[in-house]
Structure formats: C-alpha cells, structure tokens
C-alpha cells in the first residue's frame, strides 16, 4: 500500500501547491516585491534627511514570469513534501484504529498549519526580504525543532487518550516558545512596519488556506477506494 500512500500525497501536494502559489502571487508576492524596493534602497522609509513617509504599493508582477514560475515549482515541491508527511501520519493513525475521513482531513490540515506554520511564526515571523535577523542556521534549527515539537504535542493531545498525555502534549507545544527563538539584541528594520505586518499576516493567511486545502485533498485521495 506504499504506492497508495505516495500517489495520494503527490496528488494532494500538487493541488495544494498550485493553490498556494496562486494565493501567494495574489496576496504575498506584491508585498515581497515592495519589500525588495526597501531592501535595495530604491525606496527609503524614515531615512535621515528625508521625509518620514514613503510611497506605498505601485509594484507589478509583470515581466518576471520565470521568477514566478520557479516559485510555483518550489511551492509544488514544498507542499508535496508536507503531503507525504501528512499521509504518513494518516497511515500511522489508521494503524492505531483512527481511520481518516474526508471531514477529518480538514482537522489534519488545520492542525498542520498550527504546528508547522503558526507555531514557528510565533517566534520567527515571516520575513520580508532585507530583514536583518539572527544567524540563519540557529533560526532554521529553532524552526524545525518548534515544528517537530508542536506536531508531537498535537499528536499526543489528539491520540494520547488521557489527561496526562494531553498535558504533556501541551507542554511540548509550549516548550520551544518558552526557550525562545534566536533574535538579535537590536532592531534593524528598513521596511515600513505596516508593510512588514501586512506581509506576515498575508503569508500566514495564505498558509492557513493552503494547509486546509492540503488536508482536504490528502484525505480525499487517501480515502478513495483502492484500485485493484
């Protein structure tokens, strides 16, 4: 049945990755391109000797089709990776007697968003290009540890079956946040705070939608009758 595992995940990953790419192009990429104007110095915000305000908007997606095509390709790869992990979770749950249904897929998708996107974003907000931050490897380690710990915590709460395991799960979710993400001890922001905040919320909103679609699509392909 490993073939069914992989094929369900690939189909779901393609559906979710495509939706994610379209939503990103609509809601996230314009903000990202605007952030690059501040990263390169084409626009300045609150710079010494200049006006305290800067122009907003005015970026176009046009003329960079190769760049956006690569983003689509990498979204497909990323969401197929997420889908393989989720479907492996379906199979583990099924072995323990918790068969996944289409509606259950909605919960899996939302839980995936909470553990893999929202929990790391609590400590490390989605970054505009040009944002200064602590050492990359340290942030990547914290990000991966937080996602893994949150997945394990949610799984304990969902499948542990008793209060002690539920509390242990909550502890696993809380622990990386108490340890804290690596941060610099100074602020370096060059982009307007409004733009950074809008980027963070748009990025998380698109991730929430994409993970919900991923959960539904993965459950749909997973529960389809096996072809024999």
């Amino acid at each position: 049945m490993t073939k069914h595992l992989v094929s369900s995940a690939v189909f779901a990953g393609l559906v979710a990755g495509l939706c994610a790419a379209v939503l990103q192009l609509l809601f996230v990429t314009p903000l990202l391109l605007e952030g690059e104007l501040f990263e390169t110095g084409a626009r300045m915000h609150f710079a010494a000797g200049s006006a305290p305000q800067s122009d907003a908007g005015g970026v176009s997606l046009a003329g960079q089709s190769m760049r956006h095509a690569l983003t689509l390709a990498m979204d497909l790869v990323t969401y197929t990776g997420f889908a393989l992990l989720m479907v492996a979770g379906f199979a583990l749950a099924a072995r323990r007697g918790h068969e996944v249904t289409l509606r259950g897929g909605l919960v899996w998708g939302l839980a995936g968003f909470l553990a893999v996107q929202l929990a790391p974003a609590v400590g490390l907000p989605p970054e505009l290009p040009g944002a200064m931050a602590a050492d990359l490897v340290a942030r990547q380690i914290w990000w991966v540890a937080t996602a893994a710990s949150s997945v394990a915590g949610l799984a304990l709460i969902a499948f542990g079956g008793d209060l002690v395991k539920g509390l242990a799960g909550a502890g696993l979710i809380l622990l990386p946040q108490l340890v804290g993400a690596p941060h610099l001890d100074t602020y370096f922001g060059i982009a307007p705070p409004e733009l950074s905040a809008q980027f963070a919320t748009a990025s998380l909103g698109v991730a929430a939608a994409s993970w919900t679609i991923l959960g539904l699509a993965a459950a749909y392909f997973w529960t389809r009758p096996a072809q024999s």
Partner: peptide, 28 residues
C-alpha cells in the same frame, strides 16, 4: 474494506514516505 486496506500499510513504507517528505521540504 477501505479501512482494512489502509491498515495494511507497513511501518517501513510509512517511514519511507515520511522520509521522502522531509527530503523535499529540506531541499525546498
């Protein structure tokens, strides 16, 4: 029947699938 067929999946296959997912997420 679906439930029966899904539970058949062996642990090695599940681990392999999860590992493939981790590799893709790492690369991307």
């Amino acid at each position: 029947t679906q439930t029966t067929s899904r539970v058949d999946t062996d642990v090695a296959g599940i681990l392999l699938t999860a590992f493939a997912g981790l590799v893709l997420v790492f690369l991307a």
